[in-house]
Nucleic acid binder design. Structure first.
Length: 325
DNA sequence: AATGTTGCCAACCGCATTGCG
DNA sequence: CCGCAATGCGGTTGGCAACAT
């Protein structure tokens, strides 16, 4: 028997988070940082368990999370890493900055699995499915591969993963097929089903801007100056995307405690680099160049944070850019 | 227009692991 | 070393939206 779910405690709320709850959690963490998750809901005035707060923050509220579908390179990387690590989603996520294990797991189950199967590749073994097999049952999980056995080494060396990417990717007949998404997805899948893949459907297989809501300039202005319009990039399941406004948040000139461990480590490799470290934000320049990050780049192009009276701190800039302020 | 089906993803559940007294 | 609490992690589910009939 496992322990009782923490949310079984009388009076604790479950289910989708409301905008008000989000604001409370954000406000609390911005003010106090992350420490004891058990204490967070009580101190923040939330009727949630600490676990729920941690998951909400880690998987949704953190300002460094990317939005939208995985880019071409990210998807390839997920496939390659999965071939090496199996379903160790947190480890896979640690190689993809801004992505959570939950997000990658969902993307794997809803997109990549299907694509691999349609390509005739077993998503479990990453090997071609042998059609002559008479047994129609699900393929058995593969024995640990040499790479999986060495994953402990991989965990501590991102470069290994990058290096092996080249070799594992080559095992796929056409990696470009894997990245065709959204607009022409159904067409492509239909074509693939019938064994016909139009070249034009595969040419523009990179990140599709249609998949990610882009913030228009006027939306950004509105979001930071009014209390009635939403330009949030939020993709929360609750369609009533929360509006976060400056007056609702008690933002101090916040400085993230350098000693603060980053919680459950679902993003990042846990090597000790703080979310708000200067090094981290210097890295945004690189992310800006990422084709798969149009939304963020656009935000910065439109309103350079250092030219705005608000936000003042780096953290505030991040929340502001995401429409959380 | 109404109803049924499918896809997606945020959130939950519960076991595993870690840390501490 | 042991027991407990906190946290990490992967599997699963519930509910919503889009799509099909």
């Amino acid at each position: 028997m496992g322990r009782q779910p923490c949310c079984d405690k009388v009076g604790l709320k479950k289910g989708p988070w409301t905008a008000e709850e989000d604001k409370k959690l954000i406000n609390f963490i911005l003010t106090n940082g992350q420490c004891c998750w058990r204490a967070v809901p009580k101190l923040a005035g939330l009727l949630r368990c600490g676990k729920s707060c941690r998951l909400r923050w880690t998987n949704y509220l953190r300002p460094d999370l990317k939005r939208g579908l995985l880019s071409d390179s990210e998807e390839k990387m997920v496939i390659d890493l999965h071939a090496q690590l199996g379903n160790r989603w947190s480890k896979i996520a640690s190689h993809l900055p801004g992505r959570t294990d939950n997000e990658i797991k969902n993307h794997w189950n809803t997109h990549i699995k299907k694509k691999l199967k349609k390509m005739g590749i077993d998503p479990l073994t990453h090997k071609p499915i042998i059609s002559t097999v008479t047994d129609q049952s699900e393929p058995q999980p593969p024995p640990p591969t040499q790479q999986q056995q060495n994953c402990s080494e991989l965990d501590n060396n991102n470069e290994i993963a990058t290096a092996t990417t080249t070799t594992t990717t080559s095992s796929y007949q056409s990696s470009s097929v894997l990245t065709t998404e959204s607009k022409g997805k159904d067409d492509v899948e239909n074509s693939m089903t019938s064994g016909i893949i139009l070249e034009s459907q595969l040419v523009n297989n990179g990140f599709c801007t249609d998949e990610v809501p882009l913030i228009e300039p006027h939306e950004i202005v509105v979001s930071s100056s009014t209390t009635s319009s939403s330009s949030s990039l939020s993709s929360s399941s609750s369609s009533d995307s929360p509006n976060y406004f400056l007056e609702d948040l008690q933002l101090p000139d916040f400085e993230w405690p350098s000693s603060c461990d980053y919680g459950d480590n679902r993003v990042g490799d846990g090597s000790g680099m703080g979310l708000w470290d200067e090094e981290y934000f210097n890295g945004w320049d690189l992310l800006m160049e990422d084709d798969g990050d149009h939304d963020r780049k656009q935000i910065v192009d439109i309103v350079p944070p250092n030219q705005s009276p608000f936000p003042r701190t780096v953290l505030e800039q991040e929340y502001w850019a995401y429409g959380l302020l």
